[in-house]
Design a protein around this nucleic acid. Structure first.
Lengths: 345, 345
DNA sequence: ATGAAAGCGCTAACAG
DNA sequence: CTGTTAGCGCTTTCAT
């Protein structure tokens, strides 16, 4: 090769066809190319070690074949358990459809000034995913999706009509309530997440409390203690719960870390989780299965949230799907292990 | 405007100059453009709400003005404390120099097959940053940077001559040793990180132990207990240390979480950190300052690691810097708070 | 100090 | 089924 990098023209020459034909092969427009030609072209590509340029491919139709992920500029945005899972889901779906992922760290001002719009305007990306993480989500109120290819991941906003995909937190709460009640529990404590910060934690708790009262097991605020999603706070919260009512038979924690912390507190108080008292978690983090006793929990499918959001966004980008509003809730799954007792009736 | 998006040609027409001139203004080739023309062009850009296309800009010189960040496909890659900081550092530096960040999730096979090379070949990116996170880093042995614009972030490899920027872990270890010895400690326990997994934890511990023995305070393996970087394991490790030698006067933990866990264990054993015994951490996570007592620790500058790595990579990409090998260690800083006692001499 | 013209590598009508 | 041709929007010599 004299040229440093093989060209679509080189491939055409090498395989004795026109440049157009090569392009068609590249884009899998199978209908028009004979299998023989096709193979010849592919062989030439291999020979020349040809890799089509994304830049050049995108230019004619102004498509970057890239999606942006906007993440909040939080110290610990990345420290959230589920963050990696969501990103993986996004990445896998995008990659499988030939798209790359641009990472954008969105400070408050960045969003306020709608700077993310330039990503679209300068053809850097074809669509944008917004991960709100656990931050107070109101800063997103400036977010303006309207007709643009935007989607919110694991968050949602009632006031603004935006596309979103989110775990079904209300369902998780209901599942928890159904399960505990079905096992005979009536005196139940709940460790909820940081209420003021996260919509998702609110949804979960509401779902839980409402369903309990439908079962005729009303739950006053007295039996709800707030934690900060860490195991320490779970421990503290469990102690507090025990103090408020030493005779509770079950605790539902809004995430596994707090559930695990609660287990420790219960042990310290002489109660054995899974025997003397039921503990139900939420998330199904890896350590939940390894705990003693293995934690019964409600599995959240964050990977699915990421990939579903991406799939919908790509449908919008590629013009399928019409104008349909996407507001999807990803189902949760009860994972029964050994931390929940059944009460004798 | 009849056209949907303003063009460089539109700007040229609007401001009554040639297309070339606009391009020159765009690229800040100040030397050649008169201030008057320059202002006229800029005004036209504003008028037309012009945003140059990245795709088109990149094509002529095959530069995407984008960098890739390769992250390992770990469940909890993103859950590491320092991950967000590193990414932020990368992002800020890249953004300030006009580059975007492509996120690539690198599975083992992805690296083995050197698939990351296509990022360069298809002009998706101009350079690649590799964050090894806490995974067993040997999987990177296949990584082949040679002359390509690659750099390793917060990791390094002696066998392969790769560019890297990493926190100065040995210095952190030495600083810890110097500090504790200067305060009169002789019986010291150490909680190290997961030895088999992370190079950085090894460096830290080696630096610490070696420097101690230089001070005439040799430390046998007996007084080193391994933790898993979580606060629980810090607690366990501290208990173990106390069992092995109840008369230790100081504990150095390889990260703050474990140090904080150790503090709990010490309290439980009737010792007050900062009064009866010294506890020294590492990292300076936000909660370190808020702990009781506020934790004395060694601050790691992960943001700087990310931004420095990016800066060097961009120098390579832009052809400054010659062929110089980049193997930089970012200095650490002792942050004195209240968790370390001084022993009466 | 500014402009004309030739690409960068590919896609997409439109012909045949 | 395949080839011709005209761009996509910008950069960059080379003139002037």
């Amino acid at each position: 090769m004299s040229k440093s990098r093989a060209n679509i023209r080189d491939v055409a020459k090498q395989s004795g066809v026109s440049l157009t034909t090569v392009s068609l092969v590249l884009n899998n427009n199978d209908q028009r190319i004979s299998e023989a030609t096709r193979q010849r072209v592919l062989a030439a590509m291999r020979d020349l070690d040809y890799t089509p340029s994304r830049l050049a491919r995108g230019l004619p139709n102004r498509r970057a074949n890239t999606l942006a992920v906007l993440v909040p500029a939080l110290q610990h945005a990345f420290a959230d358990v589920y963050f990696g899972e969501i990103i993986s889901g996004i990445y896998e779906e995008a990659a499988s459809r030939g798209y790359r992922i641009l990472l954008e760290v969105a400070r408050r001002e960045y969003v306020r000034r709608k700077e993310y719009l330039t990503l679209l305007e300068d053809c850097s990306v074809d669509g944008i995913l917004f991960i709100g993480a656990t931050e107070e989500h109101r800063w997103l109120s400036e977010f303006d999706s309207s007709d643009k290819p935007f989607i919110i991941v694991n968050n949602r906003f009632e006031q603004w009509d935006l596309h979103y995909v989110i775990c079904d937190y209300p369902q998780a709460g209901r599942t928890a309530a159904d399960y505990l009640v079905s096992r005979g529990h009536q005196r139940i404590g709940h460790i909820c997440g940081p209420s003021s910060m996260v919509l998702t934690s609110q949804e979960l708790t509401d779902g839980f409390v409402n369903r309990l009262s439908e079962h005729g097991v009303p739950m006053g605020d007295r039996m709800i203690v707030e934690g900060q999603y860490h195991s320490d706070t779970g421990k503290l919260a469990a102690d507090e719960l025990l103090k408020r009512d030493p005779d509770i038979t079950a605790i539902f924690a809004s995430n596994d870390k707090m559930a695990l912390g609660a287990c420790q507190a219960l042990r310290a108080s002489g109660r054995i989780p899974g025997e003397d008292i039921a503990v139900l978690g939420c998330d199904d983090i890896p350590t939940a299965a390894l705990a003693d006793p293995p934690l019964t929990t409600i599995r959240m499918n964050f990977f699915e949230v990421g990939s579903a959001a991406t799939s919908h966004l790509l449908d919008m980008v590629e013009g399928r799907n019409g104008q349909a509003m996407v507001q999807q809730r990803v189902p949760v799954l009860l994972v029964e292990r050994d931390s929940c007792t059944t009460l004798p009736s």
